[in-house]
Design a protein around this nucleic acid. Sequence first.
DNA 1: GCACAATACTTTACTTTTGAAAGTGGTTAC
DNA 2: GTAACCACTTTCAAAAGTAAAGTATTGTGC
Lengths: 108, 108
Amino acid sequence: MGVKKNEKSGERCALQEILGIIGGKWSMSIIYALFSGKKRFSELERMVPNINTRMLVKELKNMEANGIVKREVFATVPPTVEYTLTTKGEKLEPIINELYKWGLEYVN
Amino acid sequence: MGVKKNEKSGERCALQEILGIIGGKWSMSIIYALFSGKKRFSELERMVPNINTRMLVKELKNMEANGIVKREVFATVPPTVEYTLTTKGEKLEPIINELYKWGLEYVN
DNA sequence: GCACAATACTTTACTTTTGAAAGTGGTTAC
DNA sequence: GTAACCACTTTCAAAAGTAAAGTATTGTGC
């Protein structure tokens, strides 16, 4: 009987699933950096302050797996890898901008 | 020269500051639970699936310190503690709802 | 012809944060 | 008198994050 813990878990867990994808410490900052167009790995490293290489790799992989960013490799020398937002990722722009505005008004 | 790493760091760090407050794994789920009005500690524990006591305490303290939730203690038996959103916290409602809608459309 | 730089990562060692579980203290219900 | 309720607190192991160095490939300067 009743293995489910919570009738509302469907709704609530959806939010948690979302936060599992973009709720981490770095995801939104990376997405924010990508609003201004495609970026190379090293550009993102410079644009997102205090992030370290390992975390940037991890977050990009995670977001790629979740269809938020697209990764394109070009066999140049030195190698070029370009990251862009997918449509799904672009749809986050107004939300992140609103969050940013909220912060300007209420943080500090 | 040039000790500053990034001219844009002012802007970018603001976003990171915001995410430091509400960008964790649990904050938004707790805020979401509080949209429907004041809640007691144990109610929140039941409403936010999979959170553990320790994390709920930590997040509530953090959000209280950041002026997002208000904590009120009533000397009843057993003790009653009520948590509510401040105005600042309430202003997050449209943003979190938009995020939720984004998830419904794009997650899965 | 060899050190050095650039790119896009990977690896290793270590610190911090998180999670699960049990405990606390006061009171009431059974 | 034992169990339950509430709002936490404590403890300890596991997971996640950070810093720093390493890898592979090629191009440039000396």
